[in-house]
Design a protein around this nucleic acid. Structure first.
Lengths: 177, 177
DNA sequence: GTACAATCGGAATGGTGATTCCGCTTCAAC
DNA sequence: GTTGAAGCGGAATCACCATTCCGATTGTAC
């Protein structure tokens, strides 16, 4: 059986880590996270073997949320606009959560060889939304996944520091009259 | 009088630093720069008090180059395209020189309060090119300097990791028909 | 209530890399 | 050619953090 205090601490750690990492990005210090969670660093390490692992846990969860959102949009929204909504959603979130920008890396060129297949899933979801939008005539035909990923990466990174005019980029992606 | 060897070493250090910093960004190590310059770290520190100072020296020079380029474009090119050319030039360079991305920060929201007035000059130059292009009807009227800076920042950051489709962003900036 | 394994907390450790120090070397003025 | 100051190299220092360790504590089973 899992000790109740252990479960409680794990939750506190995750919550604190999300807050701190969103604010400061990967450069946040482990002590700070532990302090904010109200536990010792030892406890923190009992639950997550390394900083990287803790980070990974959070990012993975976030990407999953995005994947769900993509599915939801795909199913329930006008195919011509689902793509734009998803793009916008990602950028908006990136402005609030530093971890998300790195989450994008999971979908992008990815620095350290990833694993989960999450990367593939994310790419597939975006690619799918893109194609449908193109078929519907809402997005110009001369762009493909790589371009969209690059635009997303840039928008996400920039949004991290301040407001980003997604609308302009989306206009650039719209079918040229 | 400045000792000849000192002058020579200063130049070697600057050259090596440009190369290394462009390749690896601010995380490059001081030893590496010294090694590449063929001098000891002590020498490196005799010429530049801190890593930050060395970096600053390079970035400042680069921004100056950009300012000249802006002036050149402003004077000698069709006002309707000078803006696009400048934007493109910056993004292209950012893909090659990691220091440039940070140079953009000088023109942007700037993390650690800057000084030189270089920031102001850069902003003014971009603002000027923008306005002229707008007057010429080449750029949509509903964008202003902040939006352009944000787009530049994003494009620069993304270009650092891979190809970036500037064209799409520029299309988004064009006058909407 | 007791026992013991799982958890805790947080001081100590270890690694990385910037910056300092200082005895040695080289330049250039005389 | 001599000499003092400026410059040099690179080993030693310092600071910063992630991660480890271990004696003290707490939860759960009996």
């Amino acid at each position: 059986m899992i000790r109740s205090d252990a479960a409680r601490n794990r939750a506190k750690v995750l919550e604190a880590a999300e807050a701190v990492l969103d604010e400061q990005g990967l450069s946040a210090r482990m002590d700070e996270i532990a302090r904010r969670a109200g536990v010792g660093v030892g406890t923190l390490y009992r639950h997550f073997a390394t900083k990287e692992a803790l980070y990974q846990a959070i990012v993975t969860a976030r990407v999953d949320q995005l994947l769900e959102e993509a599915a939801r949009l795909r199913a329930g929204t006008d195919p011509a606009t689902a793509f734009f909504a998803f793009f916008t959603r990602i950028v908006a979130d990136a402005g609030r959560q530093k971890t998300l920008t790195d989450a994008l890396r999971v979908a992008g060129i990815d620095v350290k060889a990833q694993q989960t297949g999450q990367q593939a899933a994310m790419r597939a979801a975006i690619d799918d939304l893109l194609r449908v939008a193109q078929t519907a005539g809402a997005v110009r035909a001369d762009v493909a996944l790589p371009e969209v990923l690059a635009l997303l990466r840039g928008a996400g990174l920039a949004a991290e520091t301040g407001a980003y005019p997604v609308g302009i980029v989306l206009d650039g992606l719209r079918r040229t009259a």
